[in-house]
């Protein structure tokens, strides 16, 4: 039969982006072990509000592990201790009564805190705008089966495409680097034939946007892979490094000089 837990929470409270934050100690008693982690926070918030307080702000939406909205670091690990799981799919039975749980926002300069545990991840959108697409106009596509793609390539692209854009890779990285995200997004398109024409532009653009956003640099510690709720492999980072080198060579040495009768103006 399901039992209840008594927990000590240390939750990061920060009223706004520029305000100073601190950890607040909250006793969370009688938490059903069948509840999800976010439901535990719902219960805590309900009690805070019943006592006239201000509830803990945290981002969440689908609560089924696919939208990538929930973003919190639980005992030092983004999305908590269970591998391959988002915070919304983490359940309280993984904890023991008497446990102290530290709950913090994703911490990175590129992800400023909005309030409490909610952070601004719009840097990811800016990276996507810098090249995370294939420029195909609606209506201009050929028949879907006109271009066979080997199952291996399609499956591999799908491995990268599983990224939910949650930012756990950034949060867990010792350097707050976004390489796993960027490499998965660029890698998906770069490994498909449809993505080849824009391959170099894409890589250069996305990496530049990543650097501009204030993320750190990858030092190949692979924390990201371990924290990723979708288990995206760091092989994509190797591929991005390779593609970036090739793009630089292409751009600097091989590409035709610009400004000579492109014709597409």
């Amino acid at each position: 039969m399901a039992s209840n837990l008594n927990l000590k929470l240390k939750i990061w409270r920060q009223p706004s982006t520029n305000a100073k934050g601190t950890f607040q100690d909250i006793d969370a008693n009688n938490i059903p072990e069948t509840a999800s982690f976010l439901e535990m926070l719902d219960i805590v918030n309900q009690r805070i509000m019943d006592g006239g307080g201000d509830p803990v702000a945290f981002d969440h939406d689908c609560r089924e592990g696919i939208c990538g909205t929930c973003s919190m670091v639980i005992n030092g690990i983004p999305h908590g201790p269970r591998r391959g799981t988002t915070a919304c799919q983490l359940h309280m039975r993984l904890f023991k009564s008497g446990d102290t749980i530290w709950i913090e926002p994703f911490r990175a300069k590129a992800f400023p805190v909005i309030k409490d545990l909610a952070v601004d991840r719009s840097a990811f959108d800016r990276i996507m705008v810098a090249g995370g697409f294939i420029s195909v106009r609606t209506g201009s596509a050929q028949d879907a089966n006109a271009l066979p793609i080997s199952k291996d390539d399609a499956d591999s692209a799908m491995d990268a495409a599983e990224c939910i854009g949650c930012g756990a890779c950034v949060a867990t990285c010792k350097n707050a680097s976004a390489m796993l995200f960027v490499s998965a997004k660029a890698g998906q398109l770069n490994s498909l034939p449809q993505g080849q024409p824009e391959k170099h532009r894409r890589v250069l653009g996305m990496v530049q946007a990543m650097d501009k956003s204030g993320f750190g640099n990858c030092t190949n510690q692979y924390e990201c892979e371990a924290a990723c709720p979708k288990g995206i492999s760091v092989r994509w980072i190797a591929k991005l490094n390779r593609d970036y080198a090739l793009a630089t060579v292409h751009e600097s040495l091989l590409a035709p000089a610009k400004g000579k009768g492109g014709g597409a103006a």
């Binding site: 697409f133 294939i134 195909v136 609606t138 209506g139 201009s140 596509a141 050929q142 028949d143 879907a144 089966n145 271009l147 066979p148 793609i149 080997s150 199952k151 399609a154 499956d155 692209a157 799908m158 495409a161 998906q188 398109l189 498909l192 449809q194 993505g195």
Partner: peptide, 22 residues
Amino acid sequence: ANIIDQCVAQGVPLAREYGGLL
């Protein structure tokens, strides 16, 4: 039918058979 064409052109990795077709 046009939707599938459009999505594939965008790089959506829909499941494929060994022959490379959808």
